[in-house]
Simulated assay, not measured.
Amino acid sequence: MSETRVVVLLGSLRAASLNKRIAETLREQAPAGTIVEIAEGLGDLPFYNEEIDTDVDVPAAAARLRTQVAGADRVLAVTPEYNGTMPAVLNNAIDWLSRPYGANALRGKPFAALGATPTRFGGKWSHEDARRSATVAGAHVIADIAISESTVDRGDILADHEFVGRLLGALDTLVSHRQETAPAA
């Protein structure tokens, strides 16, 4: 049985972030054959600038992220929502992963976005924006995965076994996704 590697792009830099805890829960409870890695150092990425992204000189944090994602089988953004969109740290990571154009680390990778936030819509817009940006970068976004959970008046949602079950179900959907290939002409 082969293993499936899923790299998580975490949209929050806070050490005790709920979305970090969601990513850790997925890592700890991933089923056999699934390895969940949380990409480290997204806060160390400089803002994307084509002038510092050259053939001879790529910032070390960007090179590490590109290598990690290129070696993954799947990519999952776990993110809150800031001001009605995805956090800058996630947008910046996708920007770095979208280059070099046409041959980037996201190209063709199954991708999904989910998370929780203490707003009425639970991060829906952030997740939609992450999916749209990943699509433009060439990822294959899995539409069936849509967990945008509001934590308003819910307490610790990771103590809710049904919610954790939905998270694990989303991970399973991402891992078990098989891309359709066009028949040869």
Rank of each mutant, 00 (worst) to 15 (best):
V8M: 03
L9Q: 06
L10H: 07
G11L: 05
S12R: 00
L13Q: 11
A16Y: 12
S17K: 06
S17Y: 06
N19S: 02
I22R: 07
I22V: 13
E24I: 09
R27W: 03
A30I: 02
P31L: 11
G33C: 07
I35M: 00
I35D: 06
I35E: 15
E37I: 05
I38M: 03
A39W: 00
L42F: 02
D44H: 00
D44N: 14
P46Q: 09
Y48P: 02
E50Q: 02
I52R: 01
D53E: 13
T54S: 14
T54E: 09
D55Y: 13
V58R: 03
A60G: 11
A61P: 12
A62W: 10
A62G: 08
L65T: 05
Q68P: 03
Q68T: 15
V69A: 03
V69D: 10
V69W: 11
R74M: 03
R74C: 01
V75M: 07
L76D: 09
P80A: 12
P80H: 08
Y82I: 06
N83P: 06
G84W: 05
A88Q: 05
V89H: 04
N91D: 10
D95T: 10
L97E: 02
S98L: 01
Y101F: 13
Y101V: 02
G102W: 10
A103N: 15
N104V: 03
A105G: 00
L106A: 08
R107Q: 14
P110M: 00
P110C: 04
P110A: 02
F111E: 07
F111N: 12
L114D: 08
G115L: 11
A116Q: 14
A116K: 06
A116F: 14
P118V: 13
T119C: 07
R120Y: 13
R120H: 13
G122R: 05
K124M: 12
K124W: 10
W125E: 12
S126W: 03
S126A: 15
S126D: 11
H127S: 12
A130Q: 08
A130E: 11
R131Q: 15
S133H: 15
S133A: 13
S133K: 10
A134P: 10
V136I: 15
A137M: 05
A139R: 01
A139F: 08
V141S: 11
V141W: 07
I142Q: 09
A143T: 13
A143K: 13
D144S: 12
D144W: 08
D144K: 01
A146K: 13
E149T: 05
E149K: 10
S150H: 09
S150G: 00
V152D: 08
R154K: 15
G155A: 02
G155V: 11
G155R: 09
I157G: 09
I157F: 07
L158A: 09
A159G: 07
D160G: 00
D160I: 04
V164K: 03
G165Q: 03
R166Y: 15
L168I: 06
G169C: 06
G169I: 01
D172G: 06
S176Y: 01
S176G: 11
E180H: 04
E180W: 06
A182H: 05
P183M: 09
P183D: 10
A184H: 04
A184C: 08
A185I: 08
A185D: 13
